[in-house]
Computed example of a mutant assay.
Amino acid sequence: MDFSFLSNYYIPLVVAACLVIGCCIKQIDVIPNKFIPTILAAIGAVVAVWDAQALSATIVISGALSGLIATGLYEAFTQYLKKVEIVFDDETDDVRDDIEIKESDVSEEEK
């Protein structure tokens, strides 16, 4: 399925704003994680309407989609950081040599 049409509907300003707001919500730990995508979609819609200074279905949907994109970016980044485990030695700031990278952890592009 071709998702290239979605590139017409995301707003970088809204993605950045929702990414920051989502990180803050995640750190506060008052709101359960399952509600964060819904909250960011709503905030994205509001920020998009504020940014465009107009109200239409396309603007609201674009803002909501941008809020959800911010959620996905945050999750993708945190999963990437969990997968890449580079541990530095505190005393020498060198990469520790006792960490093994399995063949299955390296993609074809990195070989």
Rank of each mutant, 00 (worst) to 15 (best):
M1P: 04
F3G: 13
F3L: 15
F3T: 07
S4L: 13
F5H: 00
S7W: 04
N8M: 06
Y9T: 02
Y9F: 15
Y10V: 05
Y10M: 02
Y10H: 05
I11A: 03
I11V: 08
P12Q: 13
P12I: 06
P12M: 14
L13S: 15
V14F: 13
V15E: 01
A16Q: 12
C18A: 13
L19F: 14
I21R: 01
C23F: 10
C23V: 15
C24E: 15
I25V: 14
I28F: 14
V30E: 07
I31K: 07
P32V: 14
K34Y: 12
K34I: 09
F35T: 07
I36M: 01
I36C: 00
T38E: 09
I39T: 03
A41R: 00
A42V: 08
G44E: 01
G44A: 03
A45Y: 00
V46W: 04
V46E: 01
V47M: 06
V49F: 06
V49A: 10
W50M: 12
W50D: 07
D51G: 03
D51V: 03
Q53R: 15
L55M: 13
S56C: 08
S56R: 07
A57H: 12
T58R: 12
I59F: 11
I59A: 07
V60K: 12
I61N: 13
I61D: 13
S66N: 10
G67I: 11
G67Q: 05
G67T: 07
L68G: 03
A70E: 00
A70G: 03
T71I: 10
L73T: 05
Y74N: 10
Y74A: 10
Y74M: 07
E75W: 13
A76G: 05
A76S: 15
F77H: 09
F77K: 09
T78D: 09
Q79E: 13
Q79W: 08
Y80E: 06
L81Q: 15
L81W: 05
E85C: 01
E85R: 03
I86E: 05
V87M: 04
V87S: 11
D89T: 03
E91N: 15
D93T: 08
D94R: 08
D97F: 08
D98S: 11
I99T: 06
E100N: 06
I101R: 02
I101K: 01
I101L: 10
E103N: 07
E103F: 04
S104G: 05
S107Q: 04
E108G: 10
E109C: 02
E109G: 01
E109D: 09
E110R: 12
E110T: 05
E110Q: 06
